[in-house]
């Protein structure tokens, strides 16, 4: 009897390509999220006027953060989505084991995050661009694609890394939820109870520290390393906790 001796890399490659075909819904929801981001981002701009005797300055601040924030939300939910039973059952209709399914899912998340992370600042630029047309500007955008390409590409880079971070966070959360049905209620409880209980004991401080750990990093290289290490840990934990999950029960 002729038996196939499959190589993990070969199967992962096939699964990754399969997921690009099968998970197109993920990209549709990305576009919807970013359009919502543009809409709200534009509306959320603040403006004002300062009067210095003879000189009056009207200003309007437009922020490109709306699409980025919604993209991160999207990344988190996508991370959870690809760990769900339905997605795993689909994978096991063709050749798969838990490791190959995890690796190809992670590759897909990285790929999707790269696209989403690139689109988010561009969507932000659209908001600024619209603002530009509506007012009669004297000063225009800061760190835009045209005015400062280097800053803009750093912005894209940062946006991609944050997207990857949130996707991996979603993935690890989803993996734990798949592992045990008790994880989800515990997790929800933790989100609400943890800050309340720890309010006086530095609970919020802890969250603030995490935000600062990534947000206050000024060196791009260090920031990159922090993200890579964190994301790797998240993915490694996810692979570990799902190695015994049963499919198509």
């Amino acid at each position: 009897m002729y038996l196939t001796e499959p190589r993990l890399t070969n199967i992962v490659k096939k699964q990754f390509l399969h997921k690009l075909n099968a998970y197109t819904g993920v990209f549709n929801s990305l576009i919807v999220m970013q359009l919502i981001g543009i809409f709200f981002g534009y509306g959320a701009g603040s403006g004002g006027s300062s009067n210095g005797g003879t000189l009056t300055i009207d200003y309007r601040l437009s922020t490109g953060d709306g699409p980025v924030i919604l993209t991160l939300l999207w990344a988190f939910s996508m991370g959870i989505l690809v760990t769900t039973l339905a997605y795993r059952n689909d994978a096991f209709s063709f050749i798969s084991n838990r490791l190959s399914h995890n690796i190809s899912s992670i590759l897909f998340l990285l790929f999707a995050s790269a696209i989403a992370g690139t689109l988010a600042p561009l969507a932000g630029s659209i908001i600024k661009f619209i603002s530009l047309f509506q007012s009669n500007p004297f000063f225009t955008e800061a760190s835009g694609l045209v005015s400062s390409p280097t800053d803009f590409s750093i912005g894209v880079m940062t946006s991609i890394l944050y997207t990857v971070l949130f996707a991996s966070l979603g993935y690890v959360v989803g993996s734990f939820v798949q592992r045990s049905k008790f994880v989800l209620p515990l997790l929800i409880a933790a989100i609400f109870v943890f800050p309340l209980l720890q309010l006086n004991m530095g609970g919020l401080d802890f969250i603030a520290k995490i935000v600062a750990f990534f947000g206050s990093e000024t060196s791009l290289l260090l920031f990159l390393m922090k993200i890579v290490v964190t994301v790797s840990i998240f993915f490694a934990i996810s692979i570990r906790v799902t190695t015994k999950t049963e499919v198509r029960k």
Partner: peptide
């Protein structure tokens, strides 16, 4: 978790989904 078994076998049942 055997890729060899997965590549050389197929199970057709109600739960086979795409």
């Amino acid at each position: 978790n055997s890729l060899k078994v997965s590549a050389n076998s197929i199970l057709v049942d109600d739960a086979m989904s795409f």
